[in-house]
C-alpha cells in the first residue's frame, strides 16, 4: 500500500509548487492512473515515489517502508519504468537486461530464465542479441519495461510507458501490465492516453497545477460528470481547454 501525506515539491528557482499538499492512498494490487496536462506534476510525483526527487515537504511510505529508513529495501520492492528509454544503445537487449537485472542482485540461471521469459512474452525473443540502438521505439519501450520488472517488484511505477509506440506494441505492453497486476503487482502509471487509462486502471487521479483535483474509478468519474461519455470528457471538464505550454 502506498500512503502519501501532504506531499509537496517546489523546484529551486520555480515560482510555483510542482506538487502541493497531495494526499493519496493506493491499495495493494491496484492499477492507479495519474492523469493530467503537461506540467501538472505527474512525473514529479512518480519521481518522488521512486527516490529520484527529494520532496520539499510531506511524507510517503510504500508497503510501510520509507527511503529515509529503508532505502535499499524499498528500492528492491519497487520498479520504475522511466519516460526515457534508459538503456545502453550499444549493448544488446540481453546485455542491457542482464546488467540491469544484476543491479537488483539477481544473477545466474534465475536472471537468464527471467530475461528470456519476459523477452518471449513481449515478443522480443528473436532480438535478444541485437543492439538496442537499432530497435524501434516500441521495441525499446518493451525492453525498458522488462528492465524494470526482472526483480519482480511489488510496486511498479510507469511514466508514460506507451508514449510514441504503435498499437501493436501498446497492446503487448498493456496486456503484460495486466498480467503483472493479476500476479499481485501494484501499478501506478502516468499517461496522456485517456482511453487506455479508462480501460486499464482500477482508479485514476487527475492532477492539475500540482494538486489532485479528483480521484476515483473511471466509470464513477464518468457518471458523475455531466455530459461525459468517457474519461476524456471528464478530463476536459475538470482541467479546461486552455493550452498548458510552459518553459
Amino acid at each position: 500500500m502506498i500512503l502519501i501525506n501532504q506531499l509537496s515539491k517546489k523546484y529551486k528557482d520555480a515560482d510555483n509548487y510542482a506538487l502541493q499538499n497531495l494526499d493519496l492512498a493506493i491499495e495493494q494490487q491496484e492499477i492507479f492512473g495519474l492523469l493530467g496536462p503537461n506540467g501538472a506534476g505527474k512525473t514529479t510525483l512518480i519521481s518522488m515515489l521512486s527516490s529520484l526527487v527529494k520532496p520539499t515537504s510531506g511524507s510517503f511510505s510504500i508497503n510501510g517502508l520509507t527511503y529515509k529508513e529503508n532505502k535499499n529495501k524499498l528500492k528492491q520492492i519497487i520498479g520504475i519504468v522511466p519516460q526515457e528509454y534508459a538503456l545502453y544503445p550499444t549493448l544488446t537487449a540481453y546485455e542491457n537486461l542482464s546488467y540491469l537485472g544484476s543491479m537488483y542482485g539477481i544473477n545466474g540461471k534465475t536472471l537468464k530464465t527471467r530475461i528470456h521469459q519476459h523477452l518471449e512474452t513481449l515478443g522480443l525473443d528473436n532480438f535478444a542479441s541485437k543492439k538496442v540502438g537499432f530497435f524501434s521505439g516500441g521495441m525499446k519501450r518493451r525492453v525498458n519495461l522488462i528492465a524494470s520488472i526482472l526483480h519482480e517488484p511489488k510496486v511498479l511505477f510507469l511514466d508514460e510507458p506507451t508514449v510514441g509506440v504503435d498499437v501493436q506494441s501498446k497492446n503487448v505492453i498493456i496486456n503484460h501490465l495486466k498480467e503483472l497486476n493479476a500476479n499481485g503487482t501494484t501499478i501506478i502509471y502516468t499517461s496522456h492516453h485517456l482511453n487506455e487509462a479508462e480501460h486499464l486502471c482500477t482508479r485514476v487521479g487527475i492532477i492539475d497545477h500540482g494538486k489532485l483535483v479528483c480521484k476515483g474509478k473511471p466509470a464513477e468519474l464518468i457518471s458523475k460528470q455531466e455530459d461525459a461519455n468517457n474519461l476524456e470528457d471528464v478530463f476536459i471538464a475538470i482541467t479546461g481547454k486552455a493550452l498548458r505550454d510552459h518553459a
Partner: peptide, 9 residues
C-alpha cells in the same frame, strides 16, 4: 541517455 536515472532507482 537516462541510464543513470535508472541506476539511481
Amino acid at each position: 541517455q537516462g541510464t543513470f536515472v535508472r541506476l539511481r532507482t
